[in-house]
Structures are given as C-alpha cells and as structure tokens.
C-alpha cells in the first residue's frame, strides 16, 4: 500500500485548511451560538439550546428589515443587470480593442475611493442644494427642490447601484467573451434580427454570467450598511445595521440568529441558481 499522500493533496492542504478555519469555522460558531440562551437581565449567554432568538426576529419589526433588505438586494441586483448587460455587450461586441480597454478601466474608477466617500458624494449630488436639484431648477423644470432625492429609498438605491455595478458588469463581460461571434452571424444568416439574436443566443449563453452578477450584487447589498446610513431616510434600516444595533446590547444569539437566516437565504439562492444556470460554466470549460 502506498502510504504517501499524493502531491496534489499536499499542495491543497494549506488552502483547504485556510478555507475551513477562515470560512467555515466562524459560520459554524455563528449558527451554534444562535441557538444558545441570552439572559436580558445579566447580558449572560448560556450554552443551553433555545430558539428564543429566532422567535425574537419576529418581534419589533425585525423580520420587516430582513424582508426589505432582501427586497433592496433583489431590486439593486436587477437594476445592475439591466445596466451592466448592455454595457458588457457594448464593450465586448461593439467597441474596438482600444475603446473596450478604456471602458473597462473607467469601470474600475469607483474602486479608487472608499465606500464612505462615495456614499457621501451622493449627498452632494442629490441633496436639496445638490447638483441635480440645482440643475433642474436652473433649467426651469422645477420651482422648488425635490425632497425625495436624498435620505430616501431612492437615494439608497442609487448609492447601492453605483457601488455594485462593476460587480455585475465584470462577470457579464466574462460570459460574453465565451460567446463565439460566429454564432451571431449564423443566427443572422438563419433570419434572426438584432433583438432575436440577443434573446435567443446571447442572453441564454450569458446566463451563467447573469446569475453570477446577480449573486455578487445580491450578497453585497445584503452585507452593506454605509449606503443606508449615509443616504437613507429617518428609520431606514438594513440587516447589517440591525445586527450592529443588536450587538450593541450584547445580544449575540439574536444577532447570530438574524445572520443565520440571511445565510440560509443566500445559500438557497446560490444552490438554486447553480442548479439552474451552472455557475461552473462561467469559469470552466464545461460546454463550449
């Protein structure tokens, strides 16, 4: 019997360990602590099995925050795809080599500054005396500034889309690269006009990229807090902010219960999407 481990295993051992320790261990702790007991009088956490924290999610409108967070994530992801898909199409199929490189570089510009600065800058754009209102009033389209532009769900959505857009565009671009241009010519040859070519050839073939882009944005929004804090209206909340608030009173089981629910939702989305669209196809050879 060969007792020596295959070299591939030796090579993989460290990354595997890192993934387990850095990735799974904290998650497991989160899930385990979520079913422990929290005593509101002593702030003490006892390792006794208790679903009280999950029950507490249903109180004080917490579940509303989870639902609205998922709603924001869904909406942001869809808007990012609606903007990102045509962008990726244009960069890949329409722009020349030079132009597409420039466009790609432009897409990375938002990463040059921190989330905080970026979100704050939207205040200057959307505020009562911001760029948009000033312009609209100057043009005579408005007599008084619009109030709902800032500190509103609209502002949050604008901030989230601006932050997340590149994360939708890049996987889309990656999947566009895997579409052989001769397919479009062949479809045209068989009678397909521009829109038919998009809907029957390009969209189905970029489905893995569409899903990956959706997922990246969805997960990012669920984990975001800056945009809501900087741009949201009074009482606006999002899961991260709510968890932060709960942690402040040291109710770790409740914080972890909320996290576990969100985790469950995200894992379900990933698994369902992967079964349907095959994320692996975006990166691997799979079908070509």
């Amino acid at each position: 019997m060969n007792r020596r481990l295959p070299p591939a295993f030796a090579l993989m051992a460290l990354p595997l360990l890192a993934i387990l320790v850095l990735g799974f261990l904290p998650l497991m702790v989160v899930v385990v602590w979520s079913v422990w007991t929290w005593d509101p009088l002593t702030y003490w956490i006892r390792p006794d099995f208790n679903l009280g924290s999950y029950a507490a999610i249903l109180e004080a409108g917490r579940w509303m925050v989870i639902v609205s967070t998922l709603g924001k994530a869904l909406l942001t992801a869809l808007i990012c795809l609606l903007i990102g898909w045509p962008t990726a199409y244009a960069v890949h199929f329409l722009a020349g080599r030079r132009l597409s490189l420039i466009l790609l570089a432009l897409m990375t510009v938002p990463f040059f500054t921190s989330y905080l600065i970026r979100s704050f800058s939207w205040r200057l754009v959307l505020g009562r005396t911001g760029v948009v209102n000033d312009l609209l009033i100057h043009l005579g389209l408005l007599s008084a500034p619009l109030d709902w532009l800032l500190f509103s769900n609209f502002a949050v959505l604008v901030g989230l889309v601006a932050s997340c857009l590149p994360f939708a565009t890049f996987p889309l671009l990656l999947s566009m690269r895997r579409v052989d241009p001769v397919l479009l010519v062949a479809a045209e040859d068989l009678g397909a006009g521009f829109w038919t070519r998009l809907s029957t050839i390009v969209v189905p073939l970029t489905m893995p990229g569409i899903f990956a882009g959706f997922l990246f944005v969805f997960v990012m929004v669920v984990g975001s807090s800056t945009e809501v804090q900087m741009l949201g209206g009074a009482g606006a909340s999002i899961v991260s902010v709510m968890i932060n608030d709960v942690m402040r009173v040291a109710n770790y089981p409740l914080a972890f219960a909320i996290s576990s629910v969100v985790l469950l939702v995200i894992f379900s989305v990933v698994l369902a999407g992967n079964a349907r669209f095959g994320l692996a196809r975006l990166f691997g050879e799979g079908q070509s």
Partner: peptide, 20 residues
C-alpha cells in the same frame, strides 16, 4: 437587404452551431 432577409444560407467555417 440585410443577411437575415436574403434567400441565402451559409455553412460557416466555424460552423456556428448553437451550443445551448
């Protein structure tokens, strides 16, 4: 008259079979 409205069909060098 664009390609999609000509009474012509083509077998391309790369074939261009739709993989999906």
């Amino acid at each position: 008259i664009p390609a999609n409205r000509r009474p012509v069909n083509t077998v391309f060098q790369g074939l261009g079979l739709f993989p999906h």
